[in-house]
Design a binder for these strands. Sequence first.
DNA 1: CAGAAAATGTAGTAAATCCTTCATTTTGAT
DNA 2: ATCAAAATGAAGGATTTACTACATTTTCTG
Lengths: 293, 293
Amino acid sequence: MEQVKERIRKQFGNLTASQKIISKVAVDKPSLIAIHTAKKIGELTNTSEATVIRFCHSLGYSGYSELQDEIKKALLMVDQRKGPIQKYRATEDAVTRDNYAHQVIETDIAFLQHGLEQFDYELYQQAIDSIIRANRIVVVGLRWCHIPAKWLFSTLNAIKGNTHLYTGAVDNADYFLTERDQEWLVIAISFPRHPAETIGLVQSAKSLGAKVLAITEGELSPISQAADYLLKVTTPQPVATSGMPTLFSLLNVLIKGVMVHDAANVQKRLQHYDEISSKLYSFVGEEDDFPFY
Amino acid sequence: MEQVKERIRKQFGNLTASQKIISKVAVDKPSLIAIHTAKKIGELTNTSEATVIRFCHSLGYSGYSELQDEIKKALLMVDQRKGPIQKYRATEDAVTRDNYAHQVIETDIAFLQHGLEQFDYELYQQAIDSIIRANRIVVVGLRWCHIPAKWLFSTLNAIKGNTHLYTGAVDNADYFLTERDQEWLVIAISFPRHPAETIGLVQSAKSLGAKVLAITEGELSPISQAADYLLKVTTPQPVATSGMPTLFSLLNVLIKGVMVHDAANVQKRLQHYDEISSKLYSFVGEEDDFPFY
DNA sequence: CAGAAAATGTAGTAAATCCTTCATTTTGAT
DNA sequence: ATCAAAATGAAGGATTTACTACATTTTCTG
């Protein structure tokens, strides 16, 4: 890439007017050249296919193909760095006594920032709307996903009510989904290695007409296929331990979303809760606005 | 792009094994498809050109060209948004439909960064050493603190063993602390409004000679007085909901610290776990290195 | 303004790429 | 273990794309 721009810089004086226009595209939007044919670049610059190719020759390339290949390679290189992992890989060889703490927290920050960049409002809004719309909700998360699942269950139950937690085969899907007339929503949290029981529950829920919101690692997750809404979560590995901060942060977005759209009294209740919490700093009490237990 | 991923998600179950491999490329590195020919994608996935095209057909496209064009368009769209970064700076005036998500995540990032600045190695190292030294550990966290407590209990049990979770008055302190000769450590997680039972347990544990590691909001917390080690955690409010990411991140530091100092085989086990997770992307299995349930 | 030289566009050819067909291998069920 | 069905790979035809030769337009100079 820099190789291309360097050639343009050196040869720019010798280029014709049309070729200078093409140069501008090559420098500012190289991805256009990587993707489109010489003909299209010609149309785009109000020149012709032949001029584009002559432009390549002027830069010393054998033709359009060679220039395009070089740009493609360069773009793939920067694409490779996508994802927050690379950033801290360099130092990860030696986890020493002095730096592991920074590494852990910085990794969490990196993944949160990555999640922020990739964030899809529309998707989350649909998920949040589905939660608001649902009459009854079942949260499912087995194995270690039980922990975020239980939190989500407790929180949703506190701010919305009518939420259930699927804990295992004894309470089977039929038990939860008997009232067919209701608008049911199943929220499934699952990551590799996916428990077969979670997949089974999701599928049977789907076949019973419930909506499914999947919180998982990607489109290829086995629970994604049956899902109506898919929230993709990219976390440090292994998810069971290092993934919690990122996962909870995104779950929190859901909760906040529901709270914003939901009854204002919930928000007031929480503000009230905040005030109490901060004023009575070390208050000791048994009652709780959030009946977590 | 989302259109492509959506089709993959819906059709994934109907795809053949080779096609699923191609799916992984399409989802994770769509730019590869935008740039390379069908033949190259075939080579890259150890399949063939024909299989790549059949994969396109399975998704409902007329062929590779159509799929490629759609990915190209999508990639150009996101490229368009590059340049002047329109990041939603913490304009905290109003939590609107459009920016609350950014606010939530950015708040988490801000608190993690704050925690990083304030981080006291010495303190954490003492806490980690106390965990390593302890023969038996009791984790206590009531009400909604039960969630991080259970996670800590499960994780410590997996990498160290001999860890117990105090769940309520029925299992009282005496039950846990009968073996006086052993080196007991009580890890207490508690935030306002502090459950009286947590305080009680901590105090009686202390009087029975156990060491106490308190994870709480500050020096004035009622459990801080009896604590031998105090880890101060500052989180967004309310802790029960918004505090989870920060809290888990710091707990994670503890875990990583124990792992670093602890047996090397645990770390190897976890690395192995990582490899399996990433290689068998959508693997479905029942066994788990972490016996969380 | 005229003529020449450079630049540009058009059209045709060669090459690469896509896509279909058929033979072979793999998978799954009885 | 056997057969049928499905999946895969190899090869040839169809289409698109890159490149080149020639015709036309534009630009520059005296």
